[in-house]
Design a protein around this nucleic acid. Structure first.
Length: 468
DNA sequence: CTGAATGAAAA
DNA sequence: TTTTCATTCAG
């Protein structure tokens, strides 16, 4: 039982290229104004507004000028009640400062990306690509912030892990999630350091998306009866919540889904960066699991007796579900989870028409991990434009309904374009209190973004997630 | 509360 | 060497 590697991607020296610490910042030598980089930039760069657009040589142009009031957050309005109230936050490091300013500067249009996890990835890549001197500027600012911090809190000392009691032996849970669309992030970062921004950047990314095959395509759908599983607490459900659900159609998820135990398309990121035992992120948007373990899972008939399923085979999982302590109460009546032999689901959907995916490339890219805030195509596909995508998935859903009957659990489809051939596979994540068995449901060849590739559809049978 | 990034500081 | 926590906010 070796502790599974919690983080594989972080300092794997992944990119390894361009390492730039030529100028070690000696403590106290470089003050806020002793910056020695850029001969003609001069220390002026600090907090003042617009850099001189007219007379600055292009080479010294600062791509991401610090915002006026750099950090100093007015503190979260809805205090996170986790911190003791007199908590003194750590001084921000160079990257954090850069990220803060970057976010504030809106350098990535919301049309391109809104997800902060993905933004972090983009900003991280941008940070690496940043000119040495510009990055050095942020290190200087960090130094200044540190000095200020020391001045302000002379007695401050970093005390990690203070929040948890000493008994808290549990190390923080680190979720492993599927890989982001690294290619897209890298492209955005590249464009950013080229000086592209705003509309121009947006357009460039749109063009990129047109030819880019995302690594993961997800499709998320709420069940028709989702409201039945709604939180039964007194908390009023916002109207928007209802309408969102009532539309009940085709909500592409921008969350990072689990990765399948398959190989990814060719020039994917480092293989070792891809988690092998990931699990889905919360289904909290359906709000049916947090405090309402009251729905009847018997409607969810993986049980072969209560609901004979066509195309249903009973091989064990390659990685059987572990006993679900937290869910036993919920599922005690359901043989499915108590059975050591897990059903192996297989649905032949090869009859589905998957012929024309080309026109879907753009929205499918949008539906990938880095999906921008424009999923409208999903709800109302413009005539002819993306109909193929929806038609195909609708057919897929129909096949699910035929096979499983009416099961009223939320379900998520994960669609993976890929190059290699596929084989039936299933995986689970034994780490999570909620276990998501995944079943490959469909596999076919298709055409996308001008390329032939295999295409796999997974159905994630979602079980309620427990809050612990 | 988490995830993403990098980096400083502590264990 | 490994872990936490600085920022940010949608999910």
């Amino acid at each position: 039982m070796p502790a599974e590697r919690s983080k594989s991607s972080r300092r794997s020296g992944a990119d390894g290229n361009q390492l730039v610490w030529t100028i070690p910042v000696e403590p106290a030598n470089i003050g806020t104004e002793g910056i020695t980089f850029a001969p003609n930039v001069t220390p002026v760069t600090f907090d003042d507004g617009p850099p001189p657009l007219v007379d600055a040589p292009p080479s010294e142009y600062i791509l991401f000028p610090p915002s006026d009031d750099c950090h100093v957050r007015p503190r979260r309005p809805g205090h996170s009640k986790k911190k003791p109230d007199d908590h003194i936050p750590r001084p921000p490091n160079a990257f954090i400062l850069f990220r803060s300013s970057f976010i504030k500067g809106q350098h990535v249009p919301t049309e391109v990306e809104t997800n902060h996890s993905t933004l972090s990835k983009i900003i991280g890549l941008t940070w690496k690509n940043l000119r040495d001197d510009e990055r050095q500027l942020w290190h200087s600012k960090a130094k200044a912030a540190l000095d200020e911090h020391k001045r302000k809190f002379p007695q401050y000392a970093f005390r990690p892990n203070q929040g948890r009691g000493k008994g808290g032996t549990e190390k923080r849970k680190v979720r492993e999630v599927g890989p982001k669309d690294h290619k897209r992030c890298a492209k955005i970062a590249e464009l950013l350091v080229e000086g592209k921004k705003g509309q121009e950047l947006d357009a460039a990314i749109q063009e990129f998306d047109k030819h880019h095959i995302p690594e993961i395509i997800t499709r998320f759908e709420a069940p028709l009866t989702a409201r039945m599983y709604r939180r039964s607490s007194s908390a009023p459900i916002p109207e928007a919540d209802d309408s969102k659900r009532s539309s009940c159609k085709d909500r592409a998820s921008s969350t990072q889904p689990a990765a399948p135990p398959i190989s990814y398309p060719a020039e994917q990121t480092k293989q070792e960066d891809i988690p092998h035992s990931p699990y889905l992120q919360s289904f909290d948007q359906f709000a049916f699991s947090q405090s309402t373990p009251s729905f009847d899972l018997n409607t969810f008939s993986f049980d072969d007796r209560s609901s004979p399923l066509p195309d249903f085979s009973c091989d064990p999982f390659s990685a059987p579900l572990s006993p679900l302590d937290n869910t036993d109460a919920l599922f005690s009546n359901n043989e499915y989870l108590n059975n050591t032999t897990q059903p192996h689901l297989s649905i032949d959907t090869s009859y589905l028409a998957m012929d024309d995916w080309t026109r879907c490339s753009s929205p499918m890219s949008a539906a990938s991990s880095s999906m921008p805030a424009t999923p409208s195509y999903i709800d109302s596909p413009s005539p002819g434009a993306y109909g193929t995508f929806n038609d195909t998935v609708d057919s897929f859903e129909q096949s699910l309904a035929n096979s499983f009957g009416n099961f009223d659990l939320p379900k998520q489809y994960e669609l993976y374009p890929r190059n290699g051939d596929s084989h039936f596979s299933a995986y689970t994540n034994a780490d999570s209190p909620s276990e998501y068995p995944s079943f490959e449901q469909h596999h076919s060849k298709t055409h996308m973004a001008g390329q032939d590739l295999d295409f796999s559809a997974f159905m994630m049978a979602s079980l309620p997630e427990y809050s612990i």
